[in-house]
């Protein structure tokens, strides 16, 4: 009987809403009473939840100094252990230099004006490559994700290009673009392109059809539909794609600079290897770690903002 069905349906809904079903008894009175309470109770509960968002900041794990302090514990331990092993002479200095030696190597390079130059040129290459690659990735990802025709047309080719190992491009790029900025930046563009392209195309294919249909039903189409419904729906995935792309950009930067360059952190690595300057190798690795983490943190802040705003 439909009326009975309705009774059970509403019972299930109540259970879903409240996590318990106080009014499951068959008695009509009981059923009605709890049903009356439900909407008001949930509305109230949601208000409370909303209002309670601020005081949550008091929790220890949400405090900035605690998060930063706890995150710094392990690096401090690692540096201490490093110092200990070198001062105990467990490894020879030519294999593992002491933290002090690495620090001094950094000071030395800075005094010659090379440290700032290397960091600046590498960061510049990464940023240009990242912006161009991510932009292209967004464009092609949107095209392939939204249009079946361009999916059929582009996806196989792009998939094949993606399958080419990054280093395989190097000889060709050097031949075509010479050992200048263009060849390195192009390699980084390739590296940053694919994470964004893949995540955007996939995410756009899985945008809630019902939302898109609702958008269409209210007269949205084409660019407007994309800007108002589809793009906001995929922003969280886009941002995580950007994060991956940034990591890839640093990876490809080092690949490019290791092979052909006259400055930059990758050059510092390869140059120090041929000179036997282990302290500088350590310095370069630490610089890469810090720079990578720093740029990633910036995208992370953006990601958190985007998730709050769009998810």
């Amino acid at each position: 009987m439909p009326p009975r069905d309705k009774l059970t349906n509403s019972g299930q809904e109540r259970r879903g809403l409240l996590g318990a079903s106080p009014g499951q008894s068959v008695g009509p009175g009981a059923g009605v009473r709890s049903r009356v309470d439900v909407p008001a109770a949930t509305e109230r509960a949601e208000h409370l939840e909303d209002g309670a968002k601020r005081p949550v900041g008091r929790r220890l794990s949400a405090r900035a100094w605690y998060v930063i302090g706890s995150g710094a514990i392990l690096p401090i331990i690692l540096v201490a252990a490093w110092q200990l092993t070198t001062s105990l002479g467990i490894f020879s200095v030519s294999q593992v230099p002491s933290p002090e030696m690495v620090w001094l190597a950094g000071i030395d390079l800075a005094k010659r004006g090379l440290l700032g130059q290397y960091v600046a040129i590498s960061t510049q290459r990464v940023l240009i490559g990242f912006v161009v690659g991510a932009g292209l990735g967004l464009g092609f990802g949107a095209l392939v994700g939204l249009s079946r025709a361009s999916d059929i047309f582009f996806a196989p080719t792009l998939g094949a290009i993606r399958a080419v190992p990054s280093l395989a491009w190097v000889p060709l790029l050097i031949l075509w673009l010479k050992i200048g900025e263009e060849s390195k930046i192009t390699l980084i563009v390739i590296g940053a392109f694919f994470p964004v392209y893949t995540t955007v195309a996939t995410a756009l294919r899985h945008v809630d059809r019902q939302l898109v249909e609702a958008g269409r039903a209210f007269g949205l189409k084409g660019v407007k539909l994309f800007a108002l419904v589809q793009l906001p729906a995929v922003i969280p995935s886009v941002v995580s794609g950007l994060r991956l792309a940034l990591a890839q950009a640093w990876l490809f930067l080092v690949a490019a600079e290791l092979i052909a360059s006259s400055m930059g952190i990758g050059f510092l690595l390869i140059d120090s290897q041929s000179n036997g300057r282990v302290d500088r190798i350590f310095l370069a690795i630490i610089l890469l770690a810090i720079l990578g983490k720093l740029t990633d943190a910036i995208v992370g802040v953006f990601e958190r903002w985007a998730n709050r705003k769009w998810a």
């Binding site: 019902q210 939302l211 249909e213 609702a214 958008g215 269409r216 039903a217 209210f218 007269g219 949205l220 189409k221 108002l228 419904v229 906001p232 729906a233 922003i235 705003k309 769009w310 998810a311």
Partner: peptide
């Protein structure tokens, strides 16, 4: 899609990143 019609779906189908008011705004001609 006909501009003279408006559809109310079984599910609310509101855009989760927009406020209630901004969602209603979407319906304006």
């Amino acid at each position: 899609i006909d501009a003279r019609c408006a559809v109310g779906f079984q599910e609310p189908r509101l855009l989760p990143w927009r406020t209630v008011a901004a969602n209603v705004t979407l319906g304006l001609p």
